[in-house]
């Protein structure tokens, strides 16, 4: 039982994570690097007097500033190696995080079966989408995916809110889907709403140095990629689950 769950979750999760890494490099990484240029000061969005920094936007100036910034993504021989290592770690950790999601997902399938409900592939895809809503979309409504170069509230408080939101949203969706009767649905609504009524921790002012256009595009792409990968994760985990329990 344990072996079947572990194998199914890890295989489906890691495979989905590899797709996630592919989409990461197609859509997201360039914006992270761009955000870091604003974070390190290699690019400047607005100068102190509030005018767009025309000179700073010129490619030549950027590269000059970047190379001498001393930032760890700077130029020189080290850049290629560190880029390979950095991107390799991103692939590894994207696989790892989705393996973690995969394990939780198949544990959910097993729990449903324990209570007499077989999860088919179509339902598994819906579970995947529900996972996306719980782990990414609902937390993003309070704490938008952070582009480097944005500034946010205390990390511990944000992590606590993130975790509470994930648990409340997953619980709410589960009650909505499998609860029978008005009381369960009201409880589901309360769970889904609670994190947003409480509100995510935010600073009183905005200190971000990256342009809002880049941050908005980043957040949209993160959520789009997340939806695709979670859907595939649900489908993969569901297919493996079906095959194993047949």
């Amino acid at each position: 039982m344990i072996r079947k769950l572990l194998t199914g979750g890890v295989v489906a999760g890691f495979a989905a994570g590899l797709l996630g890494a592919l989409l990461h490099f197609a859509f997201i990484q360039e914006l992270i690097l761009l955000g870091e240029e604003y974070e390190s000061g290699a690019r400047v969005h607005f100068q102190a007097h509030g005018e767009p920094d025309d000179a700073g936007m010129q490619a030549g100036h950027d590269h000059g500033a970047h190379d001498h910034s001393g930032h760890d993504h700077g130029g020189g021989d080290g850049e290629e190696t560190s880029t390979i290592v950095r991107n390799g770690l991103t692939v590894l950790f994207t696989g790892l995080i989705y393996a973690g999601y995969g394990l939780i997902l198949v544990a959910g399938f097993a729990l449903a079966e324990h209570f007499g409900r077989r999860i088919g592939t179509a339902e598994a895809i819906l579970w995947g989408i529900a996972g996306f809503v719980s782990f990414q979309l609902a937390p993003a409504m309070g704490l938008a995916p952070e582009l480097p170069g944005s500034v946010a509230a205390d990390l511990g408080a944000r992590q606590a809110w993130w975790l509470g939101t994930v648990i409340a949203t997953a619980g709410g969706i589960a009650l909505l889907a499998y609860g029978r009767g008005v009381v369960w649905w009201v409880l589901a609504g309360a769970l889904l709403a609670a994190p947003h009524v409480i509100g995510a921790p935010h600073l009183d002012e905005y200190y971000g140095v990256a342009p809002p256009e880049v941050a908005a595009e980043f957040a949209a792409r993160v959520l789009g990629v997340g939806l695709v990968v979670w859907t595939v994760l649900g489908w993969l985990a569901g297919s493996l689950w079906q095959r194993e329990s047949a």
Binding site: H24, T90, L92, T94, L143, E146, A152, L155, R158
Partner: peptide
């Protein structure tokens, strides 16, 4: 939040909506 883990997982954390810094 160990420094090594944070650096290694950095891009993935940003890209999957985890609070990072």
């Amino acid at each position: 939040q160990s420094a090594t883990l944070h650096d290694a997982a950095h891009d993935m954390r940003h890209a999957t909506g985890f609070p990072c810094h």
